[in-house]
């Protein structure tokens, strides 16, 4: 629960901050912000009327949204002021940890331990992608400028975290469902990688498909968050779309790298000594 909120917060607050700095964006006063609670009440009303049993979650979710976002706004403001690369990296790693934690929670398999490779792999891949974007494509100076690094990093994390969760969930469930097939290949002299090649392929594919599909719909169906934030902040839409193009492509790249690397690393953990399948 924490991570997606924290990450998307980082994204929108920072994007907003960038935008607000560039031109005058309308201020939302406290009482108008409170007015937005109407939407929570509407949701609660639906739950009550249809006996959905979601009332409690809606209430908690509303409170958490306020608390987490105000906290993140405060943290970001502080990090922007401090202007220290260590602080920026530290916050990025905390966000990556939260993303890995969330993705791990979404994977149902409990027989294989994969927490540490997951944390390490996600942090490394997403750091690489984010640095490439801020350093080489957006060419922020310095590359860790928090106004760029944190929102872009947050978008990389928030979007590809799901792909990793989907890929791993698929990996584990296929390992179990197709255990007899894996065993058959092992018995014919396949090594662990050869025996599970098909399963790895379909897992990585399952992880990547949503990001690839989102490239098809962008601009037609959806106006993504960063672009929306920039436009609200008064940016020229022709500049906003340039950022959005970079964001879309970087998400596809991060998704591909993240789900491939983690699936390959964690596949090894599905086999015990002697290339013996552990999931069946």
């Amino acid at each position: 629960m924490d991570a997606p909120a924290a990450i998307s917060v980082a994204t929108s607050v920072a994007a907003g901050a960038t935008a607000a700095a560039s031109s005058g964006v309308l201020h939302i006063e406290n009482w108008r912000l409170a007015l937005a609670l109407v939407f929570s009440l509407v949701a609660g009303g639906c739950s009550l009327a249809l006996k959905l049993g979601l009332g409690r979650d809606i209430a908690i979710g509303t409170v958490r949204t306020f608390a987490q976002l105000f906290l993140m706004g405060w943290v970001l403001g502080w990090v922007f002021q401090a202007d220290s690369p260590w602080l920026v990296m530290g916050l990025f790693l905390v966000m990556a940890g939260a993303a890995a934690h969330t993705a791990r929670g979404r994977v149902k398999e409990k027989a294989v331990r994969f927490a540490w490779p997951m944390y390490g792999g996600m942090a490394a891949v997403y750091l690489l992608v984010t640095v490439t974007v801020t350093g080489a494509i957006v060419a922020a100076k310095p590359w860790w400028t928090p106004q760029y690094f944190l929102p872009i990093g947050g978008m990389v994390l928030g979007n590809s975290m799901n792909s990793v969760a989907v890929a791993l969930d698929r990996l584990f469930s296929d390992m179990r469902a197709r255990a007899a097939e894996i065993e058959m290949r092992l018995c014919l002299g396949a090594d662990a990688a050869e025996a599970s090649a098909d399963i790895v392929r379909s897992a990585v594919r399952a992880g990547m498909i949503p990001a690839v599909n989102s490239m098809m719909a962008v601009g037609l169906v959806s106006l993504p968050g960063m672009m929306t934030g920039q436009i609200l902040g008064g940016s020229d839409p022709t500049l906003a779309i340039r950022y959005q193009i970079v964001v879309m492509l970087m998400i596809v790249g991060a998704t591909a790298l993240g789900s491939t690397l983690l699936t390959l690393i964690i596949r090894r953990r599905c086999f015990g000594p002697g290339m013996r399948p552990l999931l069946r």
Binding site: A180, E183, L188, G189, D191
Partner: peptide, 23 residues
């Protein structure tokens, strides 16, 4: 048998599963 690479072992000692599995 642990001295042998598992793929080589399994080619020398072939195990036929109870339920036939085809690729």
């Amino acid at each position: 048998i642990r001295e042998l690479a598992p793929p080589l072992l399994r080619r020398r000692v072939a195990y036929l599963q109870q339920t036939p599995v085809v690729a």
